[in-house]
Amino acid sequence: MTSMDFLMLTKGPLFQAALAIFAIGLVVRIVEILVLGRAHNYAEPRGNAVVGGLRTLYKRFHTDAGTFKAAPFDVVVGTIWHIGFIIALLLFIPHVELIESTLGIAWPALPNPVVDAITAITLLGLMAALVHRLMHPVKRFLSTPEDYLIWAVTFLVALTGYLAYHRVINPYPLGLGLHILAAEIFLVVLPFTKLTHIFTAFIARYYNGAIFGRKGVQS
């Protein structure tokens, strides 16, 4: 198989297959969660559940002082690479073109050198996160193989993208194909691992906030 065959395979059938597995898997899980609903609360509401839910959805972006004091590394490094990953994913011009062709919507993108620098920071952040996980006795004890798997698939997407952009892997169709393949593995793995937090984190936050909102307490 030549490098162009490989690129066409990853861009064509493999991409459609990965997209289908991702969409089916993710929607099954989310719809299941939503249909399942929550146990009926017979108590008289003392506040608005929806407002409380939305408030918590937003407020969880702020780190509370206690968490920061307990684990400053996780908060700082975790925030940096999460934001970096999202910027590289959503604001890189080739990605915007891909999203527009798939979803029909587009938005302005960032200049390539900016995305390039952010990706480099993201890669460093991910590496630091892994080192910290391995060095920290409690974190290492709590880590399961799944944690290392999702670290690897996330890191590989960013790394192959960085290498493809800098044209380090020759010929280029091979480099680009590897990046697309890494992204497809990420998509396929996502619905069946902790990576679903990308979507379910917001459902959890909403439910959490809604419960407290209904009780009329702050969260």
Binding site: K11, G12, F15, Q16, L19, A20, I21, F22, A23, I24, G25, L26, V27, V28, V31, P94, H95, E97, L98, S101, T102, L103, G104
Partner: peptide, 19 residues
């Protein structure tokens, strides 16, 4: 970066099936 084929349709069909 745009793949050949109709990715939007794939996504929609898979989404409906998933739902």
């Amino acid at each position: 970066s745009v793949p050949p084929g109709k990715s939007g349709d794939t996504l929609l069909a898979a989404g409906v099936a998933g739902a």
